[in-house]
């Protein structure tokens, strides 16, 4: 079938759509954008006890160009914001973003800071928010399952044509 684009043939045919989305949701190469203490919980989720590889999330892509899923874990500062935008733009479509932890959701405990971006969704579209400060590894597993449920019902053509890659 080759590279998935908005022109992928038969993508709206039900069995093809099922197969396509089934394949995509269980092979999410993850790009870890660890910025603070949350990334430790993220690493914990990748190790033996929680092990998100059993959900098909493969750690770690060597760079954004190999990744399907961007996982922002930690405090995003205004100085770092252009970098995350650039990395996100380098990821191939279709791409997904999980915002992990209070800081990347909304600024968290740094809500009144002069230097912290109040939520990564001001920079890039976010698919799933995982709340907590920091969230437990189990919360990330739940977030991944939520994302996979979204991908399951997704129309690949709509995903491309919507202009934004976020699933709403």
């Amino acid at each position: 079938m080759g590279v998935i684009t908005e022109k992928t043939p038969l993508a709206k045919v039900k069995p093809v759509k099922f197969l396509l989305n089934w394949g995509r949701r269980y092979s999410l190469w993850v790009f870890n954008f660890g910025l603070a203490c949350c990334s430790i919980e993220f690493i914990a989720a990748s190790t033996a006890k929680n092990d998100f590889i059993r959900l098909g999330v493969i750690p770690f892509a060597h760079g954004p160009r190999q990744a399907d899923l961007l996982l922002v874990a930690g405090t995003l500062t205004d100085k770092m914001a252009p970098v995350i935008k650039r990395l996100y733009d380098q990821m191939p479509d279709p791409k997904y973003v999980i915002s992990f932890g209070s800081c990347s959701n909304c600024g968290g405990p740094y809500w009144d800071s002069y230097s912290v971006t109040k939520g990564v969704d001001q920079i890039i579209p976010v698919d799933v928010y995982v709340p907590g400060c920091p969230p437990r590894p189990e919360a990330l597993l739940h977030g991944i399952i939520e994302l996979q449920n979204k991908i399951k019902d997704e129309d690949i053509q709509e995903k491309f044509l919507s202009g934004t890659t976020a699933v709403r």
């Binding site: 500062t77 205004d78 100085k79 914001a81 002069y114 230097s115």
Partner: peptide, 11 residues
């Protein structure tokens, strides 16, 4: 050093 270049003021 730490702040973004367009930042104004002394925080």
């Amino acid at each position: 050093l730490l702040l973004a270049e367009p930042f104004e003021g002394y925080p």
